[in-house]
Simulated assay, not measured.
Amino acid sequence: MQTGTFFKRVVGVVALTGALVAGAAQAQEARIAAVNSDRILRESSAAKAAQLKLEAEFAKRDKDLQDMASRLKTLSDQLDKNAASLSPTDRASKQSQLSNLDTEFQRKQREFREDLNQRRNEELAAVLDRANKVIKQIAEQQHYDLIVQEAVYVSPRIDITDQVLKALAASSPSATN
Rank of each mutant, 00 (worst) to 15 (best):
P156K: 01
A151I: 10
Q163A: 01
A175N: 09
K94N: 02
G4Y: 11
V13I: 15
I160E: 02
S171A: 09
K53H: 09
E111D: 15
S99H: 03
K94Q: 11
V14F: 13
K133T: 12
T74V: 13
I32G: 03
I147H: 03
Q66I: 05
R42L: 10
E57P: 06
V11A: 15
Q78E: 15
L65G: 06
T5R: 07
L52P: 04
V164C: 04
N117E: 13
V152S: 11
D38G: 08
Q109E: 14
A49P: 06
R113T: 10
I160F: 02
P88H: 00
P156L: 05
R157G: 04
A83M: 08
L101H: 00
L75S: 00
E111I: 01
S44N: 09
D159Y: 08
E111N: 10
E123S: 05
T17K: 00
R120D: 11
A59Q: 12
N117H: 06
V152G: 11
I147Y: 07
R39A: 09
D80W: 03
L54W: 00
N121V: 04
A22D: 07
E29K: 15
I40K: 00
L98R: 01
D80L: 07
S37A: 07
V11T: 12
T89I: 13
D102V: 02
A175D: 09
A125H: 11
E104S: 06
V35G: 02
Q163M: 13
Q26L: 14
R39T: 10
A139L: 03
S37V: 14
D80Y: 08
L75G: 08
L72T: 00
Q28Y: 12
T17Q: 05
G18R: 03
Q163D: 12
T176S: 08
D64Q: 11
D129E: 10
A92E: 13
A92C: 06
A49K: 05
V148L: 14
E123G: 01
S155H: 08
R91A: 10
L101W: 03
M1P: 12
Q95R: 12
T103G: 00
R42S: 11
D77M: 01
D77Q: 04
I160S: 00
K53N: 11
Q78L: 11
R42F: 14
N36V: 11
H143K: 12
Q142R: 15
A139N: 02
G4E: 15
I138P: 06
S96R: 08
A24T: 12
Q78A: 01
R71P: 04
L20S: 10
R113E: 12
Q141G: 05
D159P: 08
K63W: 07
T5G: 05
R130E: 14
L52H: 09
S99P: 05
A170R: 10
D38W: 11
L168H: 05
T74C: 00
R130V: 06
L54Q: 01
K60R: 14
T17P: 04
S85A: 07
R157F: 05
V35C: 07
T74E: 13
S171D: 15
L16F: 15
L101M: 08
S44A: 03
Q97E: 14
K60P: 03
T17D: 06
H143F: 07
A126T: 04
E29A: 09
V127C: 02
T5M: 12
A33L: 09
S85I: 13
D64W: 01
A131I: 09
M68F: 05
R130F: 02
M68N: 00
K48S: 00
K63V: 06
V13F: 08
S93L: 10
